[in-house]
């Protein structure tokens, strides 16, 4: 049967696309883990980052991978400012307010992008855009292979960052025990904003790695936002390794589901797994009980 003969390459595809999901989800899981907020604006931040990468390439000829040095820091600043200036102030200690304010921000960002950059679907053409790596069992597009490796590296880097630096020890303390952290003199709003900024920077990195094999349009964020939530829940909210594994699982599920049920119905697998994890192991695969 045909489906089985291409099972292996499909699996590999699933892993590479899963790495991209993981990249997008890394930022979300950090934000969730520390701030406990569901960030509806995550997709819109990805959209802005993709436009950043696009214009750096279109106007200045900067390669998307070189943009890794520019876009993530820019997104960090944006994320820090948004959290400090808007989201943090709007929360008034209520989850529903954060939900609403991130939703509002998403509407603003998407539509400003529509106004300034029009609804056109934009793509970039890179010298390596059509190159492939032949792995014997499958040919993988170079941008996807790069994204895969980068996802692993970024995940490790984040993990190290969180484990080793003082800043991030404080963030982790904050994630666990908000009031305690406040008592020992940690500047909570600053740390929240730092976490949000780092989360946004992850999105910036994801954008640099994604654009060579994808496109950007004002509503592109919605393409990834739902899947990123799924990955975060699956991996365990706040867990980087979880996001990576979760991304891979979702990628493979989607890929295999698509193979046997067709791409439309194959999406079912993602949500069935998602629901099952929520019901039976709501902390996710690698999450800790809050």
């Amino acid at each position: 049967m045909l489906e089985f003969s291409i099972l292996l390459p499909a699996l590999l595809n699933g892993l590479t696309i899963g790495a991209v999901y993981a990249l997008v989800a890394l930022g979300l899981t950090l934000i969730y883990g520390v701030l406990h907020i569901i960030n509806f604006a995550h997709g819109s931040m990805l959209m802005l980052a993709l436009y950043g990468v696009f214009f750096l390439h279109a106007l200045f000829g900067i390669d998307p991978y070189v943009s890794l040095l520019i876009v993530p820091p820019a997104l960090f600043v944006l994320g820090y400012a948004l959290q400090r200036g808007v989201i943090g102030r709007a929360s008034h200690g209520k989850d529903e307010n954060i939900l609403l304010v991130t939703l509002g921000l998403a509407i603003v960002m998407d539509n400003l992008a529509l106004y300034f950059w029009k609804a056109d679907t934009r793509t970039i053409d890179t010298p390596y855009g059509f190159d492939t790596v032949d792995l014997g069992i499958a040919t993988i597009a170079v941008p996807k292979a790069v994204a895969f490796v980068a996802a692993l590296l970024i995940c490790c880097a984040l993990w190290l960052l969180m484990a080793r630096t003082d800043l991030c020890k404080a963030i982790r303390a904050l994630a666990k025990e908000r009031q305690g952290a406040q008592l020992v003199g940690i500047n909570v709003p600053h740390l929240f904003a730092m976490s949000f900024g780092i989360g946004a920077a992850c999105v910036g990195a994801a954008a640099c790695l994604l654009l060579p094999s994808f496109y950007v349009a004002p509503d592109v964020g919605q393409v990834f936002v739902l899947i990123a939530f799924t990955v975060v829940v699956l991996g365990g909210m706040g867990s980087f390794a979880g996001a990576l594994i979760g991304g891979m699982i979702i990628g493979v599920t989607e890929s295999i589901g698509g193979l046997f049920l067709g791409e439309s119905l194959g999406q079912l697998g993602i949500f069935v797994i998602f629901i099952a994890v929520l019901l039976f192991r709501p902390t996710g695969l690698l999450g800790h009980r809050a």
Binding site: V86, A90, L100, V101, L103, G104, L105, A106, I107, V108, M109, D110, N111, L112, A113, L114, Y115, K118, A119, P218
Partner: peptide
């Protein structure tokens, strides 16, 4: 195009 929804979002925020 889009500015009305952007304004709507800002009012929401």
């Amino acid at each position: 195009v889009g500015l009305n929804l952007a304004l709507y979002g800002m009012v929401l925020v």
